[in-house]
Simulated assay, not measured.
Amino acid sequence: MSSDAPQLIETAVHRFLEDVPALKPLKMVIGVDLVGRGDTQMFRLEMPDVKVTKDIAADARVRVSMRRDFFNLMVEHEARVADWHQAFYEGRAKATGVAQYLKLIAQVVEKQEERNRLKRSRH
């Protein structure tokens, strides 16, 4: 099951970046921790090229952690930004790290969601 995790992470990141294109040029290393039954799989996500490797990611500026089954479900159901936003709000996913990075990402996502709401209300 762990062999498909890097591909699933890449899929989720590409889908997220489609929804929030302003984050595409962001240069950053993100640690992704997927917690399963009795173990934690750790991955290193390099951006902007979206390269995922199985690694501890000691140089990560941001670390995202969630249960593996929840992550699989989100990817399977093609989760979009609003779904991820709700997951973080409900505590199903957690992000820790450098406060400036977390704040920047949150602001960019909020502005994109605002743009999406304005587009829908105009039509």
Rank of each mutant, 00 (worst) to 15 (best):
Phe43Ile: 01
Val81Lys: 06
Asp69Met: 04
Ala58Ile: 10
Ala99Val: 15
Leu102Trp: 07
Asp49Lys: 06
Ile56Asp: 10
Thr40Trp: 00
Leu17Gly: 04
Leu73Asn: 10
His85Ala: 13
His77Trp: 13
Val13Glu: 07
Ser121Trp: 09
Arg92Lys: 14
Ile9Trp: 04
Glu46Leu: 15
Ile56Phe: 15
Arg15Asn: 08
Ile30Leu: 14
Lys94Ile: 14
Ala58His: 10
Ile105Pro: 11
Ala93His: 01
Asp83His: 14
Arg115Val: 05
Ala99Asn: 13
Phe43Thr: 01
Phe88Gln: 02
Asp69Pro: 00
Asp4Tyr: 07
Asp4Thr: 05
Ala93Phe: 02
Lys54Cys: 10
Asp69Cys: 03
Arg63Leu: 07
Pro6Met: 02
Ala22Tyr: 09
Val13Met: 15
Ala57Gly: 03
Ala82Tyr: 06
Val52Ala: 02
Asp33Pro: 00
Val75Ile: 11
Glu90Gln: 10
Asp69Ala: 09
Leu17Val: 03
Val13Ala: 06
Val75Leu: 12
Ala87Trp: 15
Glu10His: 05
Pro6Tyr: 03
Pro6His: 02
Arg68Cys: 10
Ala106His: 14
Arg68Pro: 01
Met28Asn: 14
Ala58Gly: 13
Lys51His: 08
Lys103Cys: 11
Asp55Gln: 13
Gln107Pro: 03
Leu8Glu: 11
Arg44Asn: 01
Gly91Thr: 06
Arg117Glu: 10
Ser121Met: 11
Val35Thr: 08
Glu46Asn: 12
Glu110Leu: 15
Met28His: 12
Ala93Trp: 03
Val109Gln: 06
Lys111Phe: 14
Lys51Ile: 07
Pro6Cys: 01
Met74Ile: 07
Asp33Ser: 12
Thr40Tyr: 00
Leu45Ser: 05
Ala22Gly: 08
Gln41Gly: 05
Ala79Gln: 04
Asp33Val: 13
Val29Trp: 00
Gly31Lys: 10
Asp69Tyr: 07
Glu110Ser: 13
Arg68Met: 12
Leu8Tyr: 07
Gly36Trp: 00
Glu113Leu: 15
Arg80Lys: 09
Leu118His: 11
Arg15Asp: 10
Gln112Asn: 04
Gly97Trp: 14
Arg80Asp: 02
Thr11Asn: 09
Arg63His: 06
Val50Met: 11
Val29Asn: 08
His123Ser: 09
Lys94His: 14
Leu17Glu: 06
Met74Lys: 06
Gln107Ser: 14
Ala106Asp: 15
Ser65Gly: 08
Glu113Asn: 12
Ser3Thr: 09
Val81Asn: 10
Val35Glu: 05
Val52Cys: 04
Leu118Met: 10
Glu78His: 11
Asp33Thr: 06
Glu90Val: 03
Phe70Ile: 00
Arg61Leu: 08
Asp4Val: 12
Glu90Gly: 00
Arg115Gly: 01
Leu8Lys: 12
Lys51Ser: 08
His77Met: 10
Ala106Val: 08
Arg122Ala: 07
Phe70Pro: 01
Arg68Asp: 07
Val52Trp: 00
Ala93Ile: 03
Lys111Tyr: 13
Ala58Met: 11
Thr96His: 04
Ala5Tyr: 12
Gln100Asp: 12
Val35Pro: 00
Ala82Asn: 02
Met47Tyr: 12
